[in-house]
Design a protein around this nucleic acid. Structure first.
Lengths: 341, 341
DNA sequence: ATTGGCAGTCGGCATGTATGAGTGCTAAGA
DNA sequence: TCTTAGCACTCATACATGCCGACTGCCAAT
């Protein structure tokens, strides 16, 4: 069993290794940290840690490096995150305060997060989830084309182009628009979709098909939302840390361009309890990200709907700092979006 | 003066170097290409090319490598681009055919372009430019907030949130909306902005301030457009070619995340005549991109408004292929967007 | 103008060696 | 039982050396 001091040793190994990228040996530990014991004692502790597979030696007779499992223990031990510095807090407020719309807020958020952490930052668009319909607009585009614009009360705007079989009559379209709005404005999105499914029935039979087409498309739009979108910033940071990846960073860059993959990863992390979740190294192997760690937190937007945001970087990252930053930004963003209601 | 054959030699040097990333020597030239002269003759030609600074030797007694100037001559000589293969044409059609709205079209375009060229692809959002106002919507968001949505006839939707000093009355807002639409729908954007500047005058004095606020914001929105946005795909390709960059690719990744810079570069390229424009190596030094080349073409969207799209990669890139792909995609996109009108 | 030949240059690679950091182990001390 | 000092051993890293091969530049001959 690994002793109390053993855990402390693990901690400084993680710290020093993250700071220097060099395997850390027993001698440098006693030099840099006041353990009050000799290097030989540290060595004994390290042997135990190695038995537990919390650290490993890259080659015989070199210092030790944390394993994925070691990082995991380190992170789980990390009970209390130190809050951000006042300067950082202020940066958040200054950066996000001046936003004009949802797109803008999220774009700023993702850049802010990458600057705070020096990692790749990711922000998922909020799902429409439990928000409500604020307004529906149908705009004739000429010919048989109609653009439908759906506005939700969390500020999201969704557009879509419909190609109807027959030319549309503007006045009729205005009528449909008025009725749709009367029918579903203020409803939750799930309700709205249900209402729309029977919406065409009240129209004259010869119109019914046309209206049904519009209603069906709107219903899809209502449900689909945009939860499939992801903003990203700071990919350059990956190159800065490229020595942390075996071979090239190419596969990593490739994996994070595959947004579908990342969204799946995000959704898996939803399951984990607690504010900030971390997935470390090979825990992400299934996503082509075996050498990266992902730190995320959920955030809420308006009506309790939820999405995630976080950072991605090499396994050898500064977890305490990144977790604190992710948590702070998620909280601030939730507050900012909540105020919109 | 460099002879006709000299230019031919330059051409094969560029080709072979691009293909192999190895300095090419006189011997390998005569081996791989049927020049009908000996290596010594080629050497003489190469000496001339070196005098003209079209090629250079990385170190004494190694093969030669094209200089930026050499690439430039090579590209300018490239009169006729060979068209894409039928398979590539088909890929374009299949990829872009199934798009539903402008966002979707552009997102697909940028991914397509990066796949065709194996480079970083860039697509600039079309400026609202000469397009017309299709519809304006004002949506009360509760409290003092109003969202204005501007729809242009090229399918673009622009949203913005206004925070008015005083609470707004829904009925009044609907009135304003109706009048705004009556006033500017169908107008070109420049005209619309002008109309809006005097729009508030017809309202009762106590309302005037409020209306002026809305009108001003709308006018801004009309003019601002979204020409400041840029889509990007295939950054992983930079990592694939990282050996082509001295040191790290970090500065390059950093530069291309600075969209403002790229947009400025794009606007400079607008000046260059002809369909496809290339900027090579140090020609981009001012943008932190001294080791990259950029190949772009303008494309038109709807009402003749214009934007650019293209690819960015190491100076050592396959210019003929990339220029052909950029040209083909730009043409296809123009056609696709033109049809929407 | 072109060619063959030849000396000279230099990068890259493989080899050999010295260096130093770090470990594991053992035996003695607290 | 935990801790410590000492010692032999391992191995990555850095550096020096020497060889090989690819190319060029030049010159004299065609």
């Amino acid at each position: 069993m690994v002793s109390e001091r053993g855990l402390e040793v693990l901690r400084v190994i993680v710290q020093d290794y993250v700071a220097s990228r060099e395997p850390v040996g027993s001698r440098s530990i006693v030099e840099r940290h006041a353990f009050g014991v000799s290097a030989a004692t540290i060595r004994n502790d390290m042997a135990l840690l190695e038995d537990e597979e919390l650290i490993a030696a890259p080659h015989t007779s070199s210092g030790r490096v944390p394993t994925d499992k070691g990082y995991r223990v380190f992170v789980d031990q990390l009970a209390d995150l130190r809050p951000l510095t006042p300067a950082q807090r202020q940066a958040i407020e200054a950066f996000l305060g001046a936003s004009v719309d949802l797109d803008d807020v999220l774009a700023r958020t993702v850049r802010l997060l990458s600057q705070l952490t020096h990692q790749v930052a990711l922000v998922q668009y909020p799902t429409l989830g439990t928000s409500r319909v604020r307004h529906v607009e149908l705009v004739p585009l000429g010919g048989t084309r109609v653009m439908s614009v759906l506005i939700a009360d969390n500020g999201r705007v969704d557009q879509r182009i419909l190609d109807l079989a027959n030319p549309v009559d503007d006045a009729f379209l205005a009528d449909v628009r008025a009725r749709v709005n009367a029918a579903i404005v203020g409803d939750g999105l799930a309700d709205a979709a249900k209402t729309l499914s029977t919406f065409a029935d009240v129209f004259a039979p010869e119109r019914r098909q046309l209206v049904a087409l519009i209603a069906t498309s709107l219903a899809e739009q209502v449900l689909a939302g945009r939860q499939d979108r992801l903003l990203m910033a700071g990919t350059a940071n990956l190159a800065r840390t490229e020595d942390d990846f075996t071979g090239s960073i190419y596969p990593v860059l490739e994996a994070i361009e595959e947004q579908v993959t990342l969204l799946k990863l995000f959704s898996e992390m939803d399951a984990e309890r607690g504010g900030v979740a971390a997935r470390i190294g090979r825990e992400n192997a299934g996503f082509g990200l075996a050498e990266t760690s992902v730190v995320t937190s959920g955030y809420s937007s308006g009506g309790g709907s939820v999405a995630r945001l976080g950072v991605l970087g090499p396994t050898r990252m500064d977890y305490p700092n990144n977790m604190a930053a992710v948590r702070a930004v998620a909280r601030y963003l939730s507050r900012l979006l909540g105020e919109d209601d």
